[in-house]
Design a protein around this nucleic acid. Structure first.
Lengths: 168, 168
DNA sequence: AGAAAGTGCTTCGAGTTCGAAGCATATGAC
DNA sequence: GTCATATGCTTCGAACTCGAAGCACTTTCT
């Protein structure tokens, strides 16, 4: 076994494959560095930070499912992380007036403060590792592409933590 | 707590921040779909598939540390995954002639077959979710950017699973 | 040569993730 | 109204990841 032969596999577009692997490796490494930074500056996991940031960015109050959308991919993962955030005093959970099954998660002042504490370093890491080798023009294009891709994925089939229906 | 105010945080470049978030969310969702596909088509985790693919793509034989580079970020994670792959008969582990501390991991025929079995569906998922909303030109640029970013990160400070030195 | 520091890998424990199953409420069909 | 199904969330167990500590071998310094 010295020369595994991967040719002859149908559907391979070398250029796409390389782009795909480069993308995945770059983001994977970036995620790892980000993890360190968030832990160091704010004593949170990346997931927790993302949840808080999402809350802070959307008015401060969401249902569990809305909150986890695109961040945590299992219904149980939500519960676990929301529990940790609540225990840390960064969010509160309360019943929803519209639907007795739902739980509304609300960010606290401490939660907002925490996000503010982490964000600058976060941006630093992204800038140093991701943006440094890119031009202004690159960044615009990358943002444009990724926004398209993200919307494309969102429009696609079922959603992450909600393998059942769509909400209005 | 109805209107958390994230303004006034220093160092924020709105355009970069949006690009960053779009990138991270898009890749995160993509990773999740890929996970499903690899599990369904090949009964492996994404990590295991990445390790096998790396082996298959680099001549079929690497040391543990080389193998895990950029895929698993702890020394113990290596050992665990290599153990699983070995138990599944997809790789073998043996001593290195150059360095008695090292373990050489070699992909088996079954391992190559497994990669071949998974790759086509893998490419399908990437094409459907990632490349569909992009033009040929976009893909070239994306690949170019990500290769630059990846190399930039590799060149940066310490390496993933090897917080100590660089290898030649 | 001997000691000290560096490196490759493994073991162990704590924390995190997911999927399946379960409970409670909501919605739709009849 | 009542039954069947859909949905929001939680609990539970299995699998995975990481960091710290440890062992073995290698390199470097003196």
């Amino acid at each position: 076994m010295t020369k595994p032969d991967l040719d002859g596999v149908p559907g391979l577009e070398p250029e796409q494959l390389e782009t795909y692997f480069a993308l995945m490796e770059a983001v994977s490494v970036l995620q790892h560095h980000v993890e360190q930074q968030v832990r160091a500056d704010g004593d949170l996991s990346t997931v927790q930070f993302q949840l808080l940031a999402r809350l802070a960015g959307t008015g401060g109050r969401l249902t569990m499912t809305e909150l986890a959308d695109g961040v945590v991919y299992s219904r149980s993962g939500l519960t676990y992380q929301a529990g940790l955030l609540e225990k840390a005093g960064l969010v509160t959970r309360g019943p929803s007036p519209d639907d007795d099954r739902s739980t509304l998660v609300t960010i606290t002042e401490a939660g907002v403060d925490r996000v503010k504490r982490i964000l600058p370093g976060h941006v630093q890491v992204a800038r140093r590792l991701l943006f440094e080798p890119l031009t202004e023009e690159d960044i615009r294009e990358l943002g444009d592409m990724m926004a398209r891709v993200r919307d494309h994925m969102r429009a696609q089939p079922p959603r992450s933590a909600a393998p059942r229906k769509r909400r209005a």
